[in-house]
Structure formats: structure tokens, C-alpha cells
Nucleic acid binder design. Structure first.
Lengths: 228, 228
DNA sequence: GAGGACTGACTGAATGTTCAGTCTAAAAAA
DNA sequence: TTTTTTAGACTGAACATTCAGTCAGTCCTC
């Protein structure tokens, strides 16, 4: 196949814009209707184009949706890393890490839609391509955690624990909380999940932490947009 | 709607058997193909009947699948409770609880298919009926945990911690581990997840625990049947 | 022979994908 | 400068397929 080159219309301006539009719209629709009920007609309609154009850019529906997942996961990671790099102490970085997972975000592009993650997981379970994306993304995050913990230990902020094991434990815990939040569990709302996790972490790593307004700031900042 | 009564052909023998067969087959198919790709024809074929008969028993596909989820969740709970009631100490019950969540089960009826849970969660996120099932099932389990912890404390096996909070924490942790296992995460296999959790729990509740052969017994007992 | 269990053949609707062709703007030719 | 060509972005209308659900009627059992 030599189609590779022209398969993706890659004019610098319009083509890229369109692709971005479509990926973004796809994520919106997945959030609203769920992955399984997402139709290319929905995505096209949202942008105001014909369904045929969607196929023109992404050969198949599956390709579009898979790429949308990859795109979301990548920008989430990039944004997370960016934020973390701006924070001075390991303790603050840890708090941001947890907040990104559990608290509604003020950045509308990140659109902390927890149900999205459930859909991604289901896709990862069957689609090897998505599975790869998720696996590497997960591993990257755990690496971030590991070095975060080590930095904190070297700086004397955290006590000595096995960083690797801790990262596995914590990322599982956060995923579990994500499930509860996504399913709107009556006893596990974002704020209390956040505080529960932070309390555990601060005790386990031995640094002082007390609930600040952060949770409420985040929660209300995104409150309007979240939950629907 | 007064259809309620005749909607379900409820002849004592055959009809019930058929329903059970169908629910069971539905779960098999969901495990294999995923909820979204499960078709009535698959379920019918597995039993060797015509698709029309499936509709004859369950008015709609949705009703069948929803009921299959409920059925699975209920029998899982019932079986769990049964097992727990047989164990003499709170520590052993706790271990069984964790094992049921994370280790492959020797009972083929429970068919610990973790991906199934992911699919259930996605359904619960959109389908209010399923959401209700999941919510109450989750609450029941947390109640089991709470009384388990309290019993252990009263018996002097566990130290004093907030049982309610602990139950929330642990059930989230287990859900998170389930995600990793379901997605076949390279660093979180069932056995190590089990041990990691048990180590945390025993330390936190202050009772002695050391890895026994249990994990391997369970793992190999179900090894043949699982993951095909 | 009555009633429930069951089926084969069918339908209707939804929807991913194709395709022939239009429109626009820029490059090439005049 | 004006005309012609080209190429990519885009669309409307069809196509093809997949499936849930219907229906008329058969078979079996009591």
C-alpha cells in the first residue's frame, strides 16, 4: 500500500484544524452518549459538516474514535506534567496529582469527564491498539509518581517507603475512586474522595496535610460544567 | 402497563430453566465479545435455539442484558456472603473478601471475568436501572465490610479504625485493582495485587498476615478455565 | 384439542461507507 | 492580465449490511 501518504490530507492549515475539530467533537459526543452509542453522524452534526467528510479524514469510524482516545490521554498527560513542573514542593505536586484525578477541573479542555475513563477502559479491554495507549499512559503516570515520591524523599519531605509499590497502590486507589465518582456513588463524591486519599497519602508518606479550600475552589470552578 | 404479569412466561419447569440458560449464556457472550457487541443471535446460538425465543422470554434485548447483570451481581453477592459465613475468624473472612475480588475463582459459575465489571460499570453510567443495581450492590458490600471490621475489632483481632471510612477506602482500592487486572496490566497481576492489598489491610487493621499458598491455589485452580 | 414452547422467514430502521460530482482557490499557461 | 488546469475539501444521495423485533404457523405435551 502506498496510500499511506495521501491517506491523511495533511495540508497545513485546514486539514489539521478539521482533524482537531473532529477529535474534539468525538470526545464530546462520547462523553454525552457513551462510546458505544456514538455515531459519526453525531460528530459531523456537531461541527456542521457531512458525515462523509469524517470518513474522508479518518478512514473508518474506529480509527477516529481510537485516535480520539489517544489524543485525550496524551493531552491529559501533557497537561498534568506541565502543572506538576510548576509546583515547588513534592507535597504540592502530589496534591495536584490527586486533584487531577478526582476533582473537577477548571480547564474545560480537560473536561474531567470520569465516565470517559470507564469507556476507555472498556475499549482497552478489547481493542489492542487502545490497550497499548492505555498501558503506556498508565506506566508513564506511575513513573511520574515514582520520581515524585523519590524527589520528596530526597528533599526530606517524605519518609522512606517503597516508591514503586506506592505508585501501584495509589494509582489503583485513584482508579477505584474514579469509578465511584463516575457512577455518582452516593457516599463517594469528588471532594470527600480527594480528602480521603490525601489523608492516606500524607500519613503514609509522613508529611503534614490539611484540607484547604482547594477542593471547593476546584469543585465550584468546574461545578457548572461538570456532572452533566 | 399491565403487561407485567404475562410478560414473563413463568411455567414452573421449562420456562425457568430457559430463563436461566439465557441469562447464563448472555453473561458468557458479554464476557467474550463485550457488552456492546453482544447480539441476541449469539445468545440464541449458544443455547441452540432461535433468536425469536429469546425475545419470547425477554421482551427486549435490553431487558435481557439488564437482567443478566442483575443476576450476576446478585449471585456474586450471595455466594460471597455464603463463603464468608463459613469462615471462623474476621481475618479469614477479610482474606476471602479480597480474594473474591482479585483472584480467579475455582467456581466456574462465578467466572471471575473482570472485564465483565468494566462493562457493567459503563452500563451503570448510562442506564438508570443498572445504576440502581450497582449502587445497592455496592452498598451491601460495604456494609458487609463494615460489620466484618467491627466484628474483628470486637473479637480483638483488629485494632480500632473507622470502619465506615475503611470500607470506602478498601472497596475503591479493590475496584482500582480490578481495572488493572481486567486490562492485563503488566505490573499488576492478580496474585501481586492480592498480596499488596492484604499487606496493606493487615498492617492497617493490625493483624498478622503472611502470603500462604492460597493465592497460588486459587490461581491455578481457575487457571485452566480462565482467560481462554 | 388446547395452550404454551418454539421457529423460519421476514421487515424496518439505523448507520457506516462509497461514489460521482461540485465548489473554491491557487498554480500554470495563454 | 486573463484563461485554463489542477487538486483538495466537501457533499448528497445512494448502497450495503447488520440486527432487533414481528408474525404466522408448527410441534409437543398434558
Amino acid at each position: 500500500m502506498t496510500q499511506q501518504a495521501e491517506r491523511t490530507p495533511a495540508g497545513p492549515g485546514i486539514a489539521d484544524t478539521r482533524r482537531g475539530q473532529m477529535l474534539h467533537a468525538a470526545l464530546d459526543v462520547i462523553s454525552e452518549r457513551g462510546f458505544a452509542d456514538t455515531r459519526i453522524a453525531d460528530i459531523a452534526e456537531r461541527i456542521g459538516i457531512s458525515p462523509a467528510l469524517v470518513i474522508y479524514y479518518f478512514k473508518t469510524k474506529d480509527q477516529l474514535l481510537t485516535e480520539a482516545i489517544r489524543h485525550y490521554e496524551d493531552s491529559w498527560y501533557a497537561e498534568g506534567k506541565r502543572r506538576m513542573d510548576e509546583l515547588p514542593t513534592a507535597a504540592l505536586r502530589m496534591e495536584e496529582f490527586v486533584a487531577m484525578n478526582l476533582l473537577p477541573d477548571s480547564d474545560p479542555d480537560l473536561e474531567s469527564n470520569w465516565q470517559l475513563w470507564l469507556d476507555f477502559w472498556v475499549q482497552a479491554a478489547r481493542n489492542p491498539d487502545v490497550a497499548g495507549v492505555r498501558r503506556s499512559s498508565d506506566e508513564r503516570w506511575r513513573e511520574v509518581l515514582v520520581s515524585l515520591v523519590r524527589e520528596g524523599q530526597e528533599a526530606g519531605e517524605f519518609i522512606s517507603v517503597d516508591a514503586r509499590e506506592f505508585s501501584i497502590f495509589l494509582s489503583a486507589l485513584l482508579d477505584g475512586m474514579t469509578v465511584q465518582i463516575a457512577l455518582d456513588d452516593p457516599v463517594v463524591d469528588p471532594v470527600s474522595a480527594f480528602e480521603l486519599c490525601m489523608r492516606y497519602i500524607s500519613e503514609h508518606l509522613g508529611f503534614p496535610w490539611a484540607p484547604t479550600g482547594r477542593a471547593f475552589v476546584n469543585a465550584s470552578a468546574a461545578g457548572a460544567g461538570a456532572g452533566r
